[in-house]
Amino acid sequence: MKNLISMRDLSKDEILHLMDIAGEIEKGNIVPDMQRKLAALLFFEPSTRTMFSFDTAMKRMNGNTVIMSGTKNTSAQKGESFADTLLTIAQYADIIIMRSPIEGSSRYAAEVVDIPVVNAGDGANQHPTQALLDLYSIVKTQGTLENLTIGLAGDLRFGRTVHSLAQAMALFGAKFKFFSPSFLQMPSYIKDDLAEKNIQFEECPELDGNLDDLDILYVTRVQRERFADPEEYEKARGSYILRKSMLDGVKDNLRVMHPLPRVDEIHTDVDVTQYAYYFQQAKNGVYTRQAIISILMGEV
């Protein structure tokens, strides 16, 4: 693996290898050493959480980072081509980790520079490190990725996280339940992909009463700005807010995940239950990103 651009590039074996390395890093059995290594974090659109997670991952391995956040006061604003910006940064750094609203920008970056490139999100397209940290969280809590029943809730239409997760879990024979307002349903191209792979899925009208067979419930934010009518928003979101009372009778191994930031789609009364896993999930992101960087830099 030279770059990490898209989940579509990864085989099942590569995913499992990455999970193993993340696990060994977490247990302290592998201690990657990035001393004198420099990661350039190019965040052409702000994302504090993802940026912090990568920064932490690099520094936990004694590595260093240089950070560019936004495009203000950069050469891009002065009219420099994207390729020139990348080629210059590649002279300084050992790895480029980039987020951009431009779709396909990481793929292009990997073609332009000869150091590894990690896609930390390219518009509505891919966010593979989020998908991998989600998979790591699933394997850590369930002991396997095979044959699990996964509920995906919230904005399934625009949420790139749930798209990547659905596609990745399809490699492992998952069964899906989708919970979303009707106009934020999983897009047909994802459903077609799943159907082609004989993956079972069903669309459920609401969370309450439909959680008993789930191993994972992955909740995402339903954004107010997606709704033309504020009344519709108020009506819709009520059906997709997870409350502690809805968790009576669920499987013991159920874990509730969320990519964060959360607004109110998971009530805080869920936080104290054994099922809440979203903050540990964020911590898993650091181990997963350490594993990704180490593999790409040839350190493990």
Partner: peptide
Amino acid sequence: IEGIKSRFTLSSEDKKIVRCAYCEK
């Protein structure tokens, strides 16, 4: 946006569907 050469792969011959190698649409 950058005016670079496009690259597509044939995703389904029967349905005549292609996929952009960059944005993956």
